[in-house]
């Protein structure tokens, strides 16, 4: 595995194997007034395949946002290199295939939702009827029908994140970078964004996102990398990393009585399982699941409106 990571010649053919590939990617920020250098990212080797949903995890200042900036060509690497579909990240060809949602975006507060998407569409060379059609599709996709004619300064945090996602998707990119897409969004909005990521995955998009909400990452990511102090501390598929190989869980749609539990226990003992290792528990909902069930059961999710007197 290590030997593979150290390959120094990157594949730049028309259909590269990786949507994102970095080799020894390093970023140092000099603090000239203190005569010090901050190592924001230390020799990152990363390979993300097309169609994957990849989570970047780690505490603040661990190098997640720096990684995204380097992958977008917004920062210049001090060492190493990165490739997007085999292309340099700062090339127009690479950017044409990438969409980006920054952390806590504000956008242009004076533009309406439609105007915002029109502006970003023009930057990507999408114009005319094609652009208008794309705006309709995206407004539907992110559920912003009520924000089309409103200036962004009147948007809630969740609405801003959704218009941010729409602008990132305006040119139908193959790869999406989402920096804390659910930061500051309420649980319902957050779960909608999570569902959107899953829809994007079904559409064949590659999604790379950073988040502090571990449970959400677990629900959508195929693989994750955990960062600590500018270094990748762990990387792998959630399936492989989270499974406890030494135990088996059986889920039943009904509660077992004490007598039924005893009969199941005897059967398992007969099958060779040690009696002391068998435990019967009732599964718990997460607080988020309880919250979402309650909100979604509410008769009307929209805020109440009253006629003007």
């Amino acid at each position: 595995m290590v030997a593979l990571m150290k390959i120094s010649v990157m594949d730049t053919s028309a259909s590269p194997a990786f949507a994102v590939e970095t080799i020894g990617l390093t970023k140092r920020y000099p603090l000239s007034w203190k005569r010090k250098i901050v190592l924001a990212l230390d020799h990152l080797d990363l390979q993300i395949r097309p169609g994957e949903v990849f989570g970047l995890l780690g505490p603040n200042g661990s190098g997640k946002s720096t990684t995204l900036k380097l992958l977008l060509g917004l920062a210049i690497p001090s060492e190493g290199e990165a490739r997007i579909f085999g292309l340099p990240p700062d090339s127009l060809e690479a950017r044409a295939r990438v969409g980006f949602l920054p952390e806590n975006p504000y956008f242009y507060a004076f533009l309406t939702g439609d105007e915002t998407l029109r502006f970003y569409g023009k930057l990507c060379g999408v114009t005319g009827a094609k652009l208008e059609k794309r705006i309709e599709e995206l407004i539907d996709l992110v559920g912003l029908q009520n924000g089309r004619e409103r200036p962004l300064r009147s948007y809630s945090k969740g609405m801003l994140q959704r218009i941010g996602l729409a602008q990132a998707l305006i040119h139908d990119p193959d790869l999406l970078f989402l920096d804390e897409p659910t930061a500051g969004v309420d649980p319902l909005g957050s779960s909608q964004i999570r569902d959107l990521i899953l829809r994007l995955k079904k559409m064949g998009k590659t999604v790379v996102f950073s988040s502090h909400l571990l449970e959400q990452v677990q629900e959508v990511a195929d693989r994750v990398a955990i960062f600590s102090l500018g270094k990748k501390a762990l990387e792998g598929s959630l399936e492989a990393m989270l499974v406890e190989n030494q135990s088996t869980q059986i889920n039943l749609p009904a509660e077992l009585s004490a007598e039924q539990q005893e009969r199941v226990r005897q059967l398992l003992v007969q099958a060779g399982v040690g009696a002391a290792e068998i435990r019967f528990t009732r599964p718990h909902l997460s607080l988020e699941q309880l919250y979402l069930r309650t909100i979604q059961k509410a008769p009307d999710a929209n805020p109440p409106t009253h006629p003007r007197p």
């Binding site: 977008l72 969409g99 956008f107 242009y108 507060a109 930057l123 060379g125 040119h171 970078f177």
Partner: peptide
């Protein structure tokens, strides 16, 4: 820079 809009623009195919 403050509004981070520069990131959304320069992440698009814009020099």
């Amino acid at each position: 820079l403050h509004n981070r809009t520069i990131y959304t623009i320069l992440a698009k195919p814009v020099r």
